[in-house]
Amino acid sequence: MTQRLSREELPRLYAAIAQVADLFLPVKRAGKTNFALWNTQTEVDLDTLKTAKSPKDLFFPQCEPLYTCDWREGNLTVTAQALAERDFVVFGVRGCDLRGLDVLDRVFLSDPVDSFYAARREHGTVIAFACREPEESCFCRTFGVDCAEPGGDVTVWLTDGTLYWRANTPKGQALTDRLDLLGKTDDADEQRLAAEQTAAREIIDRLPYANLFLDGWNGDATEARFASPLWEKLYRPCLACGACTFACPTCQCYDIRDYDTGNGVQRFRCWDSCMYSDFTMMAHGNNRTSQMQRFRQRFMHKLVYFPANNDGMYSCVGCGRCVEQCPSGLNIVKVIKAFEKEAKK
């Protein structure tokens, strides 16, 4: 059942949700919009289509402690970090980023379950936000994401004057039940909503990347793609930074490190990037010594290795952040197109 709320009432909605749980939503701070905890002072920004960082760090933080070791009376003691216990709501997750969470679920919720991630997933309610004005870097449809009908525990649509709200899951319904400011919709609302969705999908048809297809990319393509000479040409501008991996909603490689606090050792994990030269470095050497190999690994993982292990699901969601943020103008679209062009030759 779809419900509605006038756009002016949004601050009241935020306050009402914040009564129930911690509310995270896109907030503009120092010129950039990222997900942050809401309070009455925050500058909520729903106009920016994509947050600079994906919301993955609400479930898989860039840095999180795992446990602490200390020596008590000569005995080594390991104290595990407590799991998330507070409920939270993430408002405004786009369809692509939501798919990103599905990808992360495949990694972290598969056996053996990562309990830190699982606890956050359990306590988090995701309110997905339908796109109205997709942008030039978007290519979510290539991966089967419908940005006009993104799913999530709750889906919201925002038109010029109205917010439409629909609970999709028991978790979403539970949240909805605790909010009393949502109103009923009528037929006119339904029609308006349908028209909005149609309009958004029509824009998708006209995007520069509307005709991006994944022919030839799948779990069986390892040999042909791996050995291609194209990589040697594609990787050249790569600076070996981690901008693409950290912006990406699906990249999940991490590092585990120790920090000596002076009265114990804190072990934490933090995001890592397969683009870094020391990513696979170990005592007896490095099995990926060139940036070409590392560059190849990233895209092979997203488009070949991951689908091979996950029933054909790609580890890219078409959010286009790499398109916008790579300092050298590299991105997954270029890789896909280069192979497409090669195949046509």
């Binding site: 990694v107 972290f108 053996p112 990562d114 779990g219 390892t222 999940q252 490689c253 991490y254 590092d255 585990i256 994990r269 890592d272 397969c274 990513f279 696979t280 470095m281 170990m282 099995n287 690994q297 993982h301 070949v304 290795y305 991951f306 091979a308 292990n309």
Partner: peptide, 17 residues
């Protein structure tokens, strides 16, 4: 290969699938 997590999630010992 270099390993960190030991449970197939941290990504560094990934070769092929």
């Amino acid at each position: 290969l270099r390993m960190k997590c030991g449970v197939g999630k941290c990504g560094r010992c990934n070769i092929g699938s």
